[in-house]
């Protein structure tokens, strides 16, 4: 018993030393998976993710009540204008349609489709932790990367742009 206790001390310390290190794997995608996103867009037409197959897709989960989303959307809208090979898709989480449309008009991100997600089903299908959150899908529709929290220019340059040059 004493021996076991003595063994436990170094093990415990190793665990603790390790715990102090970077724990930054929160953004990792748990499983290679093709999310099934389909539903009605904010302007009322039917949409399925399959329509965008063949292109990398950047899926942004957002809501008009989320302030960081408001801050990141100009960047997203700019990227949507500049990055030709990438398709963009919004998922509007549990939002009032009127407020959501006003949000898009204000941030200039109405150029790409936005799926309405009134009960959060689509966000859960993606595996989103909250808003804002961005998922990067490859040409086959598999999730290859994600970003929890607001998008940054660096992240787009480091993660999205490489997908464009196969």
């Amino acid at each position: 018993m004493t021996l076991a206790a003595l063994m436990a001390v170094p093990v415990l310390l190793a665990v603790l030393v390790h715990a102090l290190g970077p724990g930054g794997r929160t953004d990792a995608v748990p499983e290679r998976r093709r999310p099934d996103l389909s539903g009605r867009t904010l302007d009322g037409r039917a949409f399925a993710l399959g329509e965008l197959r063949g292109h990398p897709v950047l899926v942004s989960v957002w809501a008009s009540w989320c302030d960081p989303c408001r801050a990141e959307f100009p960047l997203l809208a700019g990227a949507a204008r500049e990055l030709d090979g990438v398709r963009f898709l919004g998922v509007d989480l549990r939002d009032a349609p009127g407020a959501a449309r006003a949000f898009l008009a204000e941030t200039g991100a109405a150029s790409f489709p936005h799926l309405a997600d009134p009960d959060g089903r689509l966000a859960l299908e993606l595996g989103a932790r909250g808003v804002p959150e961005t998922f990067l899908l490859d040409r086959q529709g598999f999730i290859v990367d994600r970003r929890i929290g607001a998008l940054t220019q660096d992240w787009i340059e480091g993660h999205v742009v490489p997908l464009l040059t196969p």
């Binding site: 748990p30 499983e31 809501a63 549990r94 089903r121 859960l124 595996g127 989103a128 909250g130 808003v131």
Partner: peptide, 30 residues
């Protein structure tokens, strides 16, 4: 909001006749 979504999804799947294990697996995959 996400917790509300999780509860709504569980309810939807239970009503569709899924078992608790299947629902847990669904979330674990994602």
């Amino acid at each position: 909001q996400m917790a509300l979504s999780v509860r709504a999804e569980i309810e939807r799947r239970l009503r569709a006749g899924q078992s608790a294990d299947a629902i847990l697996d669904h979330f674990r995959q994602r």
